[in-house]
Write a protein that binds this DNA or RNA. Sequence first.
DNA 1: GTCGAAAGGTAAAACGATAAACCTAATAAA
DNA 2: TTTATTAGGTTTATCGTTTTACCTTTCGAC
Lengths: 347, 347
Amino acid sequence: MVTLKEIAKECNVSPTTVSNILNGKPKVGDDTKQKVLETVDKMGYKPNYIAQGLRRQKTRTIGIIAEDIVQFTTPEIVEGIMSNCEEKGYRTVVKNLRLYARWQDTWYGNESSYHSILDPALQELESIRVDGIIYVAGHARIINCFPQDFPIPAVMAYAFSNNPDIPSVVIDDQSAAWEIVSYLISKGHTKIGVIGGMKNNIHTQQRLLGYQKALFENQILYNPNWVRYAEWEKEGAVREARELFKTEVTAVFCMADRMAGGAYACLDEMGLRVGVDMAVAGFDNQNIAEFFMPGLTTMALPLKEIGDRAANILLQKIQGGEEPEEKLVCIPCTLIERQSVHQIKKE
Amino acid sequence: MVTLKEIAKECNVSPTTVSNILNGKPKVGDDTKQKVLETVDKMGYKPNYIAQGLRRQKTRTIGIIAEDIVQFTTPEIVEGIMSNCEEKGYRTVVKNLRLYARWQDTWYGNESSYHSILDPALQELESIRVDGIIYVAGHARIINCFPQDFPIPAVMAYAFSNNPDIPSVVIDDQSAAWEIVSYLISKGHTKIGVIGGMKNNIHTQQRLLGYQKALFENQILYNPNWVRYAEWEKEGAVREARELFKTEVTAVFCMADRMAGGAYACLDEMGLRVGVDMAVAGFDNQNIAEFFMPGLTTMALPLKEIGDRAANILLQKIQGGEEPEEKLVCIPCTLIERQSVHQIKKE
DNA sequence: GTCGAAAGGTAAAACGATAAACCTAATAAA
DNA sequence: TTTATTAGGTTTATCGTTTTACCTTTCGAC
């Protein structure tokens, strides 16, 4: 591989001059500059980022820690981070924790097993001397991932840090739930069931609040019997839907598209038609939603934007040294209207 | 950040000794070793991979070039690469070309626009001084991505290189198509339609060969009128299915699950039931397949294994210097049986 | 004619680790 | 006794850049 020094020798100048030219420093003559640039091109010189990093003590590299890269939310968040970083001349290195694969879909390991997975990844990023780190969670919760005095600037995406110094970028669950439940109400539904995720999960709780708020604003009584909890998966949702659809609900708000799939399956069992006999609303706008028949009305997650904002905050911190004024950024979701929610007459 | 030199001073030994201890070299006394290791731990020393990389002229980093990381096949291939590399002590750096996003879903840009996207990514990986590169394609074709005398060891995943020195790891399209069509035949179907992808695409052509082979082995006449081409997407498949289902076919082999979604939609329009009135088989086992109603019988892509094998080949080349004996590795797909294919009586 | 500033450079040190060569004392072998 | 070997180190150079400090020459102003 050709080095600066070789370019310098070829042009009869010092390595310093070549370096100055390539880095756009002033005080170089036009003819020298041209000759050097030509030689660089001719000899196929590629700057050595390793050597640069060592000397500059800056790598222009951002570390991304992903809880699970095959989780459906992750690639798009990562892509949001990457494209923003790339635009600003930063590289990214992804470490995949494979959390859910390792915990065999239990969603929650214990704290010590978590740290035995996380800490080596963190170590590694420190050894690479990344300039900053973004942690991409698979689902929202409060995570104890960065120690109190963590030396590298960091940002959380899609979850909260228990360390108050770390900014977090999350979705606005409550408003999103409010929006889609309000939509159901606008279509004439007043008896609206809910199939939530895990009961103590932040997504579930916030979305339930949004549901309650929408009901309250429309003076609809909140009936706790119509609120059921599955485990974010289709099977549990089928089970809960069977019970729920014994009641007089005309619509159901499922807190995940996968669970809406369970509601569809249950209705199919019962010989009822989605969007005709029962309205179903989802959440996530996972790619499966458009293949449901009829298409699932749902809330689209602003995944790419989450990554984008997280990167913005981190890079601002790194480049300008400024702390963001808001430590918690909530991004709104978007209603995607398909055919699973029908209009009914008000009673 | 604490350095080797500081550890050395603290322990009254030379930096070399500390380095030797940390790298497991022989010729160090047990007491010195223990003292150094304690100090390393106490002072929180993290080796500087940047400095290591510069001195060793090896970064233990593999570059991954992804055509599009949000393409459904990509994350799992990448995960396969990452977990294999991690196991062997290699890091990975992902560059996302965002090809399909940039080409606005046309699937094919022209050669010069392609290189204006690829070349900077390649340059960047060279500047990082990666030890090797894996190119992860979004769909199979012959790609002109590495120049003839490319100086860094490289491997293609999910597509072919036009440079014969570069090994490729791809799926065995023909056998997979043969397997699922044979399955249809085993269920009594003899009039089997096909909805393929783009006509000149390698996947399409190979899968068609598998289809023909299965027919031939069962002495079923090949009827070209039953073979239609959509563009890998649902909408085109609906269009083609409308025509196809005017014929006497009892089953259809769709070369992508998304297109099977189109067949489902068309059958729904016509008031026919999948898995009862018409058998539908897919390809990909994309996550949507299990949410189809009834569940879609399809071929699962060995994505993780593709990544795993590609990494194996690359690392062997890097570590041992051996060229792989086979330049083209085909990985078989797996039949996933759900409910979209029913048994019919033979005539 | 001298002083100051600017233009256009160069030399040497440094970033943090490691490889290669070298050193010393103790022990073993001849 | 002499020589060789080994254990347990140390010294020095080096990887490819960039930074800091320094050096000329030229030109314009006074």
